[in-house]
């Protein structure tokens, strides 16, 4: 099995092929889907796509880290991180014998 990397262009191509939209409109729509999700995530909202998974923002508190090279302790500032929880359907589709 040869592994590929799928990009925006492939997603746009799918819209062009399956839905008969123009190439430029397909590319714009892929971008719009991602931007709309990004705006929600940045606003701190969970984005839940049924059959796919959920993107959730989590707040991490300050903790002490260590520079692995020098051993110097440095504080890691509080930050927000994005986590993705895959839906059961996605996990199932990844594990059915192909």
């Amino acid at each position: 099995m040869t592994e590929r990397t799928i990009t925006r262009a492939d997603l746009a191509d799918a819209l062009y092929k399956h839905l008969g939209l123009s190439r430029s409109e397909s590319a714009d729509l892929v971008e719009l889907v991602l931007n709309t999700m990004t705006d929600q995530i940045v606003a701190g909202n969970t984005v839940k796509i049924s059959g796919f998974g959920a993107f959730e923002v989590r707040q991490k508190g300050e903790r002490i880290g260590r520079n692995p090279k020098t051993g110097v302790e440095v504080p890691i500032t509080p930050r927000k991180v994005l986590t993705f929880r895959a839906s059961h359907l996605l996990k199932e589709k990844m594990n059915k014998s192909s």
Partner: peptide, 28 residues
């Protein structure tokens, strides 16, 4: 259909063992 197609495409890619890289957003 547009939204379903986008996510179906990502799901099938992962099902094949492929990687999905969406610069600026993230990578599956």
């Amino acid at each position: 259909k547009i939204v379903d197609t986008v996510f179906d495409e990502i799901v099938s890619a992962l099902g094949r063992g492929d990687r999905v890289e969406l610069r600026g957003f993230g990578a599956f």
